[in-house]
């Protein structure tokens, strides 16, 4: 088992290197640091000195891949590629435009992100599976039909609408919870209720429908007929036989996103004013803070790969066929 995990982690390294190369190309080769400086300082009235200063402040004044002015290993280490890209493997993300250390920011913002993402994920999973089970149980009846119709309708509504509509209805009209904001500790609860509920609702259509499909597919299999032939009541067939098999694709599909929960949600966080990584990213995008965006791309891929590894491990846990072979 340990061997297996180590092997999976080794597989991840070339992928991370690939991600790193892609971001490096995107941020430093497609546009030169000069372009970025000009863009940030204003296109027209910008002196070469100002550009040099801007580059120097950020450490972009070195050659891209190979530094001819240095000796020995310095040829490779004193370059943008080494200092900006390779350094990310050591979680050294550098500083944001406002001078703060990005790694530190990320650490402090993870928790608020998790505070909405985790409840949305867990409660959502329970709610979706429950509804999907109900629809599968009442398959080919009106419950199922209208359930599917509702799912399709929910899927067709923009997530922005859920947020704006929810804020308007619950906070502005009914004054049940504050529109936005965040505080640490238990007080956070009143700020979190609305985003969590909205998060669950906005994902409901697609997930419920998908889970229903999984359940129905599982129910058409032969072993379900065997279970019925034993005289088991439909509820036991559904819960003991179908659910157990259907949980394999559902759980493993869910596990892959668990690490990504740390990244939070881009729009929900910015609408509700939650100081998480999502709103951090949005702010960085709108202020064109390249260093932060680059750090987030790397972090996101890293977490996704962790998710893939966790998925493989969870497969071995829930599926005896893989565990024992």
């Amino acid at each position: 088992m340990l061997n297996y995990i180590i092997r999976r982690i080794l597989y991840a390294i070339p992928i991370l290197v690939g991600v790193n190369l892609i971001t490096f190309t995107l941020f430093f080769v497609v546009n030169t640091p000069d372009d970025m400086a000009r863009m940030q300082l204003g296109i027209k009235r910008v002196t070469p000195e100002a550009i040099e200063k801007w580059k120097h402040e950020r450490g972009y004044d070195k050659p891209l891949m190979l530094n001819d002015s240095e000796e020995g290993s310095g040829k490779f280490t004193h370059t943008i590629f080494f200092e900006k890209s390779v350094a990310m493997f050591a979680f050294d993300f550098g500083r944001a435009d406002d001078g703060r250390d990005i790694a530190h920011e990320i650490k402090s913002r993870m928790l608020p992100s998790l505070a909405i993402a985790l409840p949305v994920f867990l409660l959502g999973l329970i709610v979706y599976i429950t509804f999907a089970l109900v629809m599968a149980f009442f398959r080919a009846t009106y419950v199922d039909f209208w359930g599917v119709v509702l799912c399709v309708a929910l899927m067709s509504i923009s997530s922005l609408f859920y947020i704006i509509g929810g804020q308007f209805l619950i906070s502005k009209l009914w004054h049940l919870v504050p529109i936005s904001g965040y505080s640490s500790g238990l007080d956070a609860g009143k700020f979190l209720v609305l985003p969590v509920i909205i998060g669950i609702i906005s994902g409901a259509g697609a997930s419920t429908r998908w889970y229903r499909t999984i359940f129905l597919e599982e129910m058409s299999k032969d072993y379900v007929r065997t279970a019925r032939a034993k005289g088991l009541p439909e509820s036991i067939v559904l819960f003991r036989h179908v659910l157990r098999n259907a949980m394999i694709p559902i759980l493993t599909g869910a596990v892959v996103v668990i690490p990504l929960l740390f990244l939070g949600s881009l729009i929900a966080e910015s609408f509700f004013g939650i100081p998480g990584l999502g709103s951090y990213t949005i702010d960085a995008i709108s202020s064109q803070d390249f260093a932060v965006v680059r750090a987030m791309v790397f972090l996101g891929s890293l977490l996704y790969i962790v998710g893939l590894i966790l998925t493989d491990i969870s497969y071995t846990l829930v599926d005896p066929r893989i565990r024992l072979e």
């Binding site: 991600v19 892609i22 941020f27 497609v30 680059r294 791309v297 996101g300 996704y304």
Partner: peptide, 16 residues
Amino acid sequence: SIPGVLLIAAAVLMMQ
């Protein structure tokens, strides 16, 4: 493995 929104954001920023 790069989360979609982030890749799009990065690419669009660079395009800008």
